[in-house]
Design a protein around this nucleic acid. Structure first.
Lengths: 334, 334
DNA sequence: CCACGTCGTCGAAGCGATTCGACGGACCGA
DNA sequence: TCGGTCCGTCGAATCGCTTCGACGACGTGG
């Protein structure tokens, strides 16, 4: 493996000059630069990451903490993750993957050993035990999701409050007078995961504003759970004409259940989903939906993190506005 | 941040002694060891990852390359990934996440800069362009999946050939005489991804052995795709009594389609899935299935990698035997 | 009782980059 | 022409750890 000294000798310059060519931190004559770059290519030189980290006090690695718990839709997490990795690479950084189960100790470890320069944390709860730890770590952090107290933190997420409201706005606008929300499994609410709570809040608030009757139904992420909730819904609320679903895995089973109960969509029942566009497009019928912009959230999270690493100050809260796309699953009630 | 020198001073020993306490590479009297450990705790010492990597020529990080392509079931990938991370941590290693789209250059980079000591590569194709690169990298690698030529490589995966055969064995044993295989989307076959090809091979071979009539049907991973294949199946093969499904996303839609076509499961049609147990248990009815042991594959892959890092020689191919669990979706034909 | 091997510890030499201060030459204005 | 800047490059120190050889002390066998 070629080292910087080899490159320097090959190009007839000092090692420090090579370093400056690479980092651009001092000006170098074009001619020298070209000579050095040629030597680098000729020798196939690649700087040693550890040596670089030691000398510069920067590893160019960020940690990504992913959840591995029940009740959260896995494909969305994956979209976040790949978006984060891709964006990080564009900023010349790599991504170290941590799972929730290493918990706070894991955060301490990767920060304490200088393995990573900064971190992105997904699936934040309202009262997340990791938050106090972040302060002592003294490294830039971006949270995907919102805890109860965002003091001194940087958070980003879809504006779920607005998303919940947008669904109701759309349905109320079509003339619906009773709407149900089918939400995440109960454990998600018990954990006080922000997104579930916020969707409900926006949903309820908008309903009041429109004078529409609503009900909220947590739902297990299984076919059986979907059938149970569907039956419940139809039995308890004969005047129900629209449903908002914020629970990806039950989307399919729920639609089947409605169909089997003889309700056709959208003629007898309108359905709006909060889910990735991809999913909404692939069901039958295609669903009117508020998109979960996982790719964008990941990209923005990285951008925020890089800004913080550069010492810039960034907004404490970034809420991405919801985007509702009307498709075949909603219409005015008959 | 405390350094090793601080610990040494605090404990009244040489820095090298602290290092040996931590690494266990030389014997240390119990008393000294305890004193050093106490100092480490007192100062909250954590070794600097970069310095360690530089001096020892080991980063204690492994790369995990995940696919981000269409046609592969995301939750399974996620299970692999978390299993790899968890297992790696048990071996005192961290995991750097790479995506397919950095391709061979990414492999060169992380190996060339000594960012990682070794790598795990998922979703290997029969003729994978990354394979030639691995040789020049000169770092331990474990592949999840099998390429055409495994010369000099270490590969691990579920034995999909045996899995395909196991499904047929089970169904033929129940008395079925015509069985269809609903497989991955066409693009997966076109890429020559090993698992799809091998399942088909095992399926066909076993069918011949049992003298059972078969057909194979690639299927888009959408509800529409499922409906199309279901219709095709029922129309073209009136004598069909059993289906093997190796395509997670269409499982639900396919069952719905059969039901809507008036076929009840398992009375009119037996169904065997090749999918994670979790999924098979949550459908209605619960599906007889061959499990995809993602957790085990991940764990074993890490174990193999660690063995290679220790200089041990390991088997070139590890095929995990399939495990078929009978559930409510299969019975003898009427 | 001596020679020798073993055990536990120390000191110093790296590992391969970055970065800071210094320095010589070119260029500028007075 | 001379002093002062600025620019491009160099050399050396430094980052924090591991590891190798050396070196007493101690136990053992002859």
């Amino acid at each position: 493996m070629a080292k910087i000294e080899d490159v320097a000798r090959h190009a007839g310059v000092a090692p420090s000059t090579v370093s400056y060519v690479l980092s651009g931190k001092r000006s170098i004559t074009q001619e020298t630069r070209e000579r050095v770059l040629a030597s680098i290519k000729a020798l196939g030189y690649q700087p040693h990451a550890g040596a670089r980290a030691l000398a510069s006090n920067r590893s160019n690695v960020v940690a990504l903490v992913i959840p591995l718990r029940s009740g959260i839709h896995v494909p969305v997490i994956m979209q976040f993750a790949t978006s984060v990795v891709t964006s990080a690479r564009e900023h010349d950084h790599d991504v170290l993957l941590l799972t929730q189960n290493e918990g706070e100790a894991g955060l301490r470890r990767v920060a304490g050993t200088s393995l990573v320069d900064a971190m992105i944390i997904m699936d934040v709860e309202l009262h997340d035990p990791r938050i106090p730890v972040l302060a002592e770590l003294d490294r830039p952090v971006v949270l995907i999701g919102f805890p109860a107290d965002t003091e001194g933190l940087t958070c980003i997420d879809l504006d779920f409050t607005a998303a919940g409201a947008a669904c109701v706005d759309h349905l109320a606008g079509l003339g619906h007078r009773r709407i149900a929300l089918v939400g995440s499994p109960p454990e998600v609410y018990e954990r006080e995961t922000g997104f579930a709570t916020r969707t409900t809040a926006g949903f309820t608030e908008a309903a009041e504003r429109h004078g529409v009757a609503v009900s909220v139904h947590p739902c297990e992420a299984t076919a059986a759970g979907a059938q149970k909730v569907a039956a419940e819904l139809l039995a308890d609320h004969p005047d129900l004409t629209a449903v908002v679903v914020h629970n990806e895995p039950v989307l399919g089973p729920l639609l089947s259940a409605f169909r089997e109960a003889g309700r056709s969509i959208p003629d007898d029942l309108s359905v709006v989903a909060i889910c990735p566009d991809e999913l909404a497009e692939h069901t039958m019928p295609a669903l009117t939906s508020v998109a979960i912009p996982a790719e964008e959230v990941g990209r923005e999270a990285v951008a925020l993190l890089m800004a913080k690493l550069d010492g810039q100050s960034v907004p404490a809260a970034t809420l991405l506005p919801p985007r509702l796309t009307p498709r075949a699953s909603t219409s005015s009630p008959r």
